[in-house]
Design a protein around this nucleic acid. Structure first.
Lengths: 228, 228
DNA sequence: CCAGCGCGTGAGGGGATCGTGAAGGATCGG
DNA sequence: CCGATCCTTCACGATCCCCTCACGCGCTGG
């Protein structure tokens, strides 16, 4: 899948890739890219960092929330900081425009060779009446949509992508709020509270999020057999 | 492992890598590099393509004959053909000198992160009906989850990761409570008691934790199903 | 036989942590 | 400029956990 907003680049990549025997899908926005990664069975994503609708590293992070598909970044930017941020967000490789087609193909082969047999983590998780669509960032209980703020959703994503694991206060704060945090347990209290309230869970008899006093929290929801 | 024939580059890489907490081995020839990859337990190889004794792509191929360790190429050459050959020989990434240290570190993190799934060992220990999942920090007997306080879990972890060994009072107190402790045997009495109670063990006829009078305690539980 | 010591058992207090409710700011769009 | 939304902060009971103390028992050596 090629994600780029410039039609002529999409066309050029499609031509070259198809000439080498690959099947190609092209999209023009980050949103479509995330959905494509969720719904299609991809072997590789070529992602332009300079998309108009959303930041490139955010696209990577959203894809990485549910998929391990290899992602190679295409970018005109050259600064080290961009590369570091993209790679740390979960990208596999970084190619600077203008690039040689042979090099891109070689890096693509290397990335796909490394990719293990498709682990096909479903982008739609179901816990009883609760549904979490990691690709669209949509949450619903019993069919009714649940509105979550960005922080609330970030916390929920951290939980459902680490089912069963004990997540310490520090780990959660760093993951949701950023590297500089780690001691603000009051944030967790408030946001876990609103999450439990919005998802219909009870702190006294939890079915989704349990409290591990003095340590952190744990997602105990069992994934129901998801309908296709 | 850094493989480069120029001593000043070896030194510079060693300094930067060690400053970021990595343990570094440096060698100066391709021959030593192949031997190092075979004999050492490496997390990453940084390989200069311009070695005097053998061609860089041959080094990669020989390493790939027996190892999947991530290999990042460092090279002054810029031609596409070199990159393509190195990547197709099995390299994971390619960085052109002069390179930024931050970018190299980010690519190194990305390469090692991808290699992670191999070592995802399910740290699940089983002792009869007792199950201890060290990764998820989850304990259960007969399928029923057992809730442990942080101190109780710390003590259990100290026991099951040192099966069969005689653990003295002082050793246990230092490990679970911290460096400043060593004489508070009453702590141990209380917590060993609650552990035995929660795990269904009997002090008079122990099957998990035995008391070594005057010295300490010992975990005698036998791992049921071999985890390998 | 008995005194002393270490260990197991049970219960309880003090303090840290958590859930709850609410309110003050920051940001954004209209 | 104003309203809405969201993030942050605070206070106050309730809960949980760590530590302490007292007591009884078994072992051991005198």
């Amino acid at each position: 899948m090629v994600v780029d907003d410039e039609p002529q680049i999409r066309r050029a990549l499609r031509t070259s890739l198809e000439a080498h025997g690959y099947e190609v899908v092209t999209v023009g926005t980050g949103q479509e890219g995330v959905l494509g990664a969720a719904e299609l069975s991809l072997d590789l994503v070529l992602l332009d960092l300079g998309l108009p609708d959303m930041d490139g590293t955010d696209v990577i992070r959203r894809i990485r929330a549910f998929s391990d598909v290899p992602v190679i970044i295409l970018s005109v930017r050259e600064t080290q900081l961009d590369k570091v941020k993209a790679l740390d967000a979960g990208a596999d490789d970084f190619v600077t425009k203008p690039f040689g087609m042979e090099e891109l193909l070689a890096r693509a082969r290397a990335a796909m060779r490394r990719a293990q047999p498709d682990e096909a983590a479903p982008a739609l998780l179901t816990f009883g009446a609760l549904e979490v669509d990691l690709a669209r960032r949509l949450v619903s209980t019993g069919g009714n949509p649940v509105h979550l703020t960005p922080t609330e959703y970030g916390l929920l994503e951290a939980f459902v992508t680490n089912q069963g694991k004990l997540l310490t206060h520090q780990w959660l704060l760093r993951r949701v709020w950023g590297q500089g945090y780690g001691t603000e347990t009051s944030y967790l209290r408030t946001y876990v509270r609103t999450l439990r309230k919005k998802l219909g869970d009870d702190a006294a008899a939890p079915e989704l999020i349990t409290t591990e006093p003095g340590v952190g929290y744990r997602w105990i929801g069992e994934t129901s057999t998801a309908p296709q």
